[in-house]
Design a protein around this nucleic acid. Structure first.
Lengths: 229, 229
DNA sequence: ATAATAAGTGTTTTTTTGACATTAATTATT
DNA sequence: AATAATTAATGTCAAAAAAACACTTATTAT
């Protein structure tokens, strides 16, 4: 058939998932030990190939599930990488996706014999292919995103202290924040509910627990509020 | 061969270029009349297929050149679209790219019988496939980008007046800006050189011409300065 | 009783943004 | 020669936002 589609190259399309996690020890990244050649045994982002009858978003979810058991993680698309030899076996372009999740809420699944592992940001090993570059870009995007919309819903336990929230932001931005200014900025967003309970684990005095006010949060999301920390 | 690469689908990968242009009449978008089926004769972004031995960035440049004659246009990658039926002929994912250029500097090339045409933003026709969505997303990104880094280098003649620069920003942001505040913000960036010449075309008094100070601009780019207009 | 620990809380200064109106220079018109 | 017309040039003030900064409080362990 003589059309513009007949003389074209079909190409392997991969998806790589960059999963950031947060727990008491700070910000981490989820990696897997690659179980096939080439680069078998090396650390890698969570990747796989896009199928013909599948949308990229769906592929990202499927691939993440296949290698980690994680379910229902909402990821955002980042960038398409297309260097000719980025994968030495065969020409492959790869579209990266990322998400940020609460490690403690999800860890149980992970342990089920998937060979995924969390690495703190300071201890990320050398990754295969161009995955280092993908990760660097994702970190940049994560920081940027943090300044646009509050994150945190999925990252902290349902009830959390101001200190925990502060430390989450400090981990993502990797800089110190002024406690008083942080608290007043967060309060001015008016999306937290202060509970009567205190968390007694971290201090003698105990610190008040908060939870997100999901309704107000959704309402405010529409006007995409900016949080300058 | 028994490896992870053997049971995978290869997929057509397209690139679509969203070229914004600016001239005295404001912001425009460059479209082509599609010259093959399906949707022959309809308006479309400037698109083509990625080749096996080609990087996406290069493909974007080649495709833009093929359909418009434009050369040396730096484009930025935006997003990969992958709906199953976005192209009714065959499964195709498409990666969008965008650029913003000065129409007057480039028009001559375009006229050479390429069937590309500029449309002012208010008069954009219905586009094929998901190109409307691509365009909407690109506009959003363009506006955002404007707030992050000064644009304008390539968009105005070498020497330009403050009014021209103001109108450029107003066109992109599609809102009015206060002239005095605009000028003082731009001046505070310290990347313009005020010339001794005046442009006498626009008024009896004449208005001073400026040019970009490329060195200072490059220097400041490193610290990615924010311009809140 | 007191020492230790982390929590909680407000004020001041500085910076940035936003609103706003008049004068200046020149040419065309009478 | 005076005046009208046109667009350029310019600065201040008020409000809001961001940043810097330190002491008191509640509680438990010693």
């Amino acid at each position: 058939m003589l059309n513009k589609y007949s003389d074209t190259d079909k190409i392997l399309v991969a998806v790589d998932c960059i999963i950031f996690g947060f727990d008491a020890d700070g910000l981490k990244i989820l990696l897997i030990k690659r179980d096939f050649e080439p680069e078998k045994g090396k650390w890698s982002l969570i990747g796989g190939f896009l199928k013909n009858d599948e949308v990229l978003d769906t592929a990202a979810i499927r691939i993440l599930n296949t290698y980690t058991g994680l379910n229902d993680i909402y990821m955002e698309q980042l960038y398409a990488y297309s260097e000719i030899d980025r994968d030495p076996v065969e020409r492959t372009i790869s579209v990266s996706y990322y998400a940020l999740i609460n490690i403690e809420n999800h860890n149980a699944e992970l342990i089920k014999n998937y060979h995924a592992q969390w690495f703190s940001m300071a201890e990320v090993p050398k990754l295969i292919f161009d995955h280092d570059k993908m990760l660097r870009n994702a970190i940049r995007r994560l920081r940027y995103r943090t300044s646009i919309k509050p994150i945190g819903f999925e990252l902290l336990p349902e009830k959390f202290t101001m200190r925990q929230l502060l430390e989450l932001y400090e981990a993502i931005l990797s800089k110190e924040l002024d406690k008083r200014n942080f608290i007043s900025k967060i309060n001015s967003l008016d999306i937290l509910i202060k509970l009567d309970e205190k968390d007694m684990k971290s201090s003698r005095k105990g610190s008040y627990l908060y939870r997100f006010d999901k309704e107000k949060y959704e309402e405010k999301l529409l006007n995409d509020f900016v949080l300058n920390l």
